[in-house]
């Protein structure tokens, strides 16, 4: 499951990235393995997404969100 699969109001914890070279900028903004993330809302046309991470709101596109893998809630 990735961040792109979440619905508004869902919370999850990040496991890692699908790609070997994740965008460092997103990591610098605080999106790291072990970080808690909440999807707040989608933009009116469904993209981008408003997520809450480390206490602030960040907007990312679904395309990038689909690269961020989540920890399976059952095994967490």
């Amino acid at each position: 499951m990735t961040v792109a699969d979440l619905k508004p109001g869902d919370r999850a914890v990040i496991k890692g990235w699908l790609t070997d070279s994740p965008p460092i900028r997103l990591m610098e903004l605080g999106i790291l393995p072990g970080t808690a993330i909440e999807v707040v809302r989608f933009a009116p046309l469904g993209d981008p997404i408003d997520i809450k991470v480390r206490g602030y709101h960040l907007s990312i596109r679904k395309e990038d969100a689909s690269q961020i893998v989540l920890i399976d809630s059952f095994s967490a």
Binding site: L26, L58, S59, D64
Partner: peptide, 9 residues
């Protein structure tokens, strides 16, 4: 490019 934009309060 990828898109990451802060939504400040």
């Amino acid at each position: 490019s990828f898109f990451a934009m802060e939504l400040p309060p």
